[in-house]
Measured scan of single mutants.
Amino acid sequence: EAHAAIDTFTKYLDIDEDFATVLVEEGFSTLEELAYVPMKELLEIEGLDEPTVEALRERAKNALATIAQ
C-alpha cells in the first residue's frame, strides 16, 4: 500500500519520491487526505511551510477533480 501511495503522489502531485515517502511515513496514503486534512496537520511535517502546503493541497484537489472526470 505504501508503494502505491508513493506512486500516486509522485504522479499526481508532481513531487519526487523522497517527498512522497515522507508524506506516507507521516501517515498520508490518499490524495483525499492531503486535499482535506486540516492544514495544521501538514504544517507539523518538518520542512513544510504554508506556501508549500497550500500548493500541495491545491494539486491534490486538482488531481481528484481530474480523476473524477
Results as ranks from 00 to 15, higher is better:
residue 56 L to N: 00
residue 56 L to P: 00
residue 27 G to R: 02
residue 59 R to L: 08
residue 43 L to M: 11
residue 29 S to Y: 15
residue 28 F to S: 00
residue 53 V to C: 09
residue 28 F to G: 00
residue 11 K to W: 07
residue 67 I to T: 06
residue 1 E to I: 10
residue 30 T to V: 04
residue 42 L to P: 03
residue 69 Q to N: 13
residue 11 K to D: 05
residue 36 Y to Q: 11
residue 61 K to L: 12
residue 41 E to K: 13
residue 34 L to I: 15
residue 12 Y to I: 05
residue 69 Q to E: 15
residue 17 E to M: 12
residue 50 E to N: 07
residue 18 D to I: 12
residue 12 Y to W: 15
residue 39 M to D: 07
residue 51 P to A: 15
residue 48 L to F: 10
residue 40 K to P: 08
residue 42 L to D: 03
residue 45 I to G: 03
residue 53 V to M: 10
residue 40 K to V: 12
residue 33 E to G: 06
residue 34 L to F: 05
residue 19 F to H: 04
residue 22 V to I: 14
residue 3 H to A: 13
residue 35 A to D: 02
residue 51 P to Q: 15
residue 44 E to M: 14
residue 44 E to K: 15
residue 60 A to R: 00
residue 42 L to E: 02
residue 46 E to G: 11
residue 12 Y to N: 04
residue 60 A to C: 04
residue 50 E to P: 12
residue 18 D to R: 14
residue 55 A to R: 15
residue 47 G to Q: 06
residue 40 K to W: 14
residue 3 H to D: 10
residue 33 E to C: 08
residue 64 L to T: 03
residue 61 K to D: 03
residue 52 T to G: 10
residue 11 K to T: 08
residue 61 K to E: 06
residue 29 S to N: 12
residue 38 P to G: 08
residue 4 A to E: 10
residue 39 M to G: 06
residue 9 F to A: 02
residue 28 F to H: 03
residue 27 G to A: 02
residue 1 E to D: 13
residue 58 E to Q: 10
residue 67 I to Q: 07
residue 50 E to W: 12
residue 28 F to M: 04
residue 4 A to D: 11
residue 39 M to T: 12
residue 17 E to F: 13
residue 11 K to H: 11
residue 4 A to Y: 08
residue 5 A to L: 11
residue 39 M to Y: 06
residue 34 L to Q: 00
residue 68 A to F: 03
residue 41 E to N: 10
residue 48 L to S: 03
residue 54 E to A: 13
residue 6 I to W: 02
residue 11 K to F: 09
residue 20 A to E: 00
residue 10 T to A: 07
residue 33 E to L: 07
residue 62 N to R: 15
residue 16 D to L: 07
residue 64 L to A: 04
residue 49 D to H: 06
residue 65 A to L: 09
residue 34 L to R: 00
residue 63 A to Q: 04
residue 27 G to S: 02
residue 48 L to G: 02
residue 49 D to A: 05
residue 68 A to Y: 03
residue 46 E to Q: 12
residue 35 A to P: 02
residue 16 D to G: 10
residue 49 D to G: 05
residue 37 V to M: 10
residue 27 G to P: 00
residue 55 A to N: 11
residue 8 T to W: 12
residue 18 D to P: 09
residue 13 L to Q: 00
residue 53 V to R: 05
residue 43 L to F: 06
residue 36 Y to I: 12
residue 21 T to H: 11
residue 35 A to T: 07
residue 45 I to V: 09
residue 40 K to R: 12
residue 45 I to W: 04
residue 30 T to G: 04
residue 20 A to R: 01
residue 66 T to L: 14
residue 32 E to S: 08
residue 17 E to I: 15
residue 36 Y to C: 08
residue 61 K to Q: 09
residue 16 D to M: 07
residue 26 E to C: 09
residue 44 E to N: 13
residue 3 H to S: 13
residue 31 L to D: 00
residue 43 L to A: 07
residue 17 E to C: 09
residue 40 K to T: 13
residue 65 A to N: 11
residue 29 S to R: 14
residue 29 S to C: 09
residue 52 T to I: 11
residue 68 A to K: 13
residue 30 T to W: 04
residue 15 I to T: 02
residue 46 E to I: 13
residue 53 V to A: 15
residue 25 E to A: 13
residue 39 M to S: 10
residue 55 A to W: 07
residue 30 T to N: 07
residue 42 L to H: 04
residue 47 G to S: 08
residue 42 L to Y: 05
residue 22 V to A: 11
residue 31 L to K: 01
residue 7 D to H: 11
residue 38 P to Q: 07
residue 10 T to E: 05
residue 60 A to K: 00
residue 32 E to R: 07
residue 3 H to T: 12
residue 2 A to W: 13
residue 51 P to L: 12
residue 41 E to H: 10
residue 12 Y to V: 05
residue 59 R to Q: 09
residue 60 A to Q: 01
